[in-house]
Design a protein around this nucleic acid. Structure first.
Lengths: 129, 129
DNA sequence: GTTGACTTAGTACATAGGTACGGAGTTTAT
DNA sequence: ATAAACTCCGTACCTATGTACTAAGTCAAC
C-alpha cells in the first residue's frame, strides 16, 4: 500500500474543496478511483500533482477544456508549448482590447466636468450616438 | 402620431436582435410599451437612443447590471462619472493581472526547448509544484 | 457506544448575457 | 384572398466554473 488518502485529505492537501475535486472528476480532468468495499474511495498521491497541475494551468489562464486536452506533460511538452503560445496570443489580444476600452473611458471621463446638465454634456452626446 | 415602430424595426435600426431587446426588457433595461388593441407594441423613437446607450456602455465594459443602475444621463452625468472611474480602476487591475499571466507564460515557454523528455523539462517542474 | 466528522451520489442553483423554439395571431404584399 | 413575414408570450437551452444541499452510510475519538 502506497500513499493513498480520502477525498477530504486530498482537498486540503491542495487547498481546494471536495466539491471542486468531484466537479473535476465529472469533467474528466481527474480520474476517480474505484470504490472499495467500505465505500470510501482512496486517492493516490499522484492525484495531488495532477490537481496542482490543473490549478497552475488555471492560474495561467487556461480553461478547464484546454487543460483536458493537455492531459499531462509525461509525454513531452510539445503540446503544452503549442497551447501556451496560442494562449499567449489571445492574452495579448485581450490586453490590447482592454487598453482600447481604458482609453475610451478616459476620453469620456475627461470630456466633461464631473457634473453637468445633460443638454451640454459631451458624455451624453457620445453615449447616445 | 409620432415616430413609433414595431420591435423588428427597432431591432434592425440599432443592429441587435429582437430576442436581445426582449431580454433587455425582461432585465428592466428597456421599458416595454403598452399593448395596443392589435397586439403589436409600438416603440417610441427614444428607445433607439436608449438601446444605443446600452450598446455603447457595454462596449466600454459595463455590465448590464451596472447599466441598469445608470438609468440614463438626463439627470446629469455625476453617476456616470463615478461608475466610469470605478470601471477604469477595475480595467487597470484586469490589465495588470493579464500582464502577470503573460509574463508567467513567457517564462514557461522560454524555460525549455519546444519538445523535451518529461523528466528534464523545467515546464513540468513548474507545473507540478 | 455514542457523538461528530467524514464520504457517497445525485441534483439543483448560481452568474452573465443572451439564443432558440413553438404555436397562435396579425399585417403586408402580390 | 392567400402566402410570407412579422409579432406575441413563455419557456428551455447554452457556456464556464463551480457551490449548495439532501439523505444515507461509515469511521474515529473519547
Amino acid at each position: 500500500m502506497g500513499k493513498t488518502m480520502t477525498i477530504g485529505k486530498l482537498a486540503s492537501a491542495v487547498g481546494i474543496s471536495v466539491e471542486t475535486i468531484r466537479f473535476y472528476q465529472r469533467q474528466g480532468l481527474v480520474t476517480q478511483p474505484k470504490k472499495p468495499l467500505n465505500g470510501f474511495r482512496q486517492y493516490h498521491f499522484d492525484t495531488i500533482e495532477r490537481l496542482k497541475f490543473i490549478i497552475n494551468a488555471k492560474s495561467l489562464g487556461f480553461t478547464l477544456n484546454e487543460i483536458s486536452t493537455l492531459d499531462n506533460l509525461s509525454s513531452g511538452c510539445k503540446l503544452f508549448h503549442d497551447l501556451a503560445n496560442t494562449k499567449l496570443e489571445s492574452i495579448k489580444n485581450e490586453i490590447s482590447h482592454l487598453h482600447n476600452i481604458e482609453q475610451n473611458i478616459k476620453v469620456l471621463i475627461d470630456s466633461c466636468s464631473s457634473d453637468c446638465k445633460a443638454d451640454d454634456c459631451s458624455i451624453a452626446e457620445k453615449m447616445y450616438s
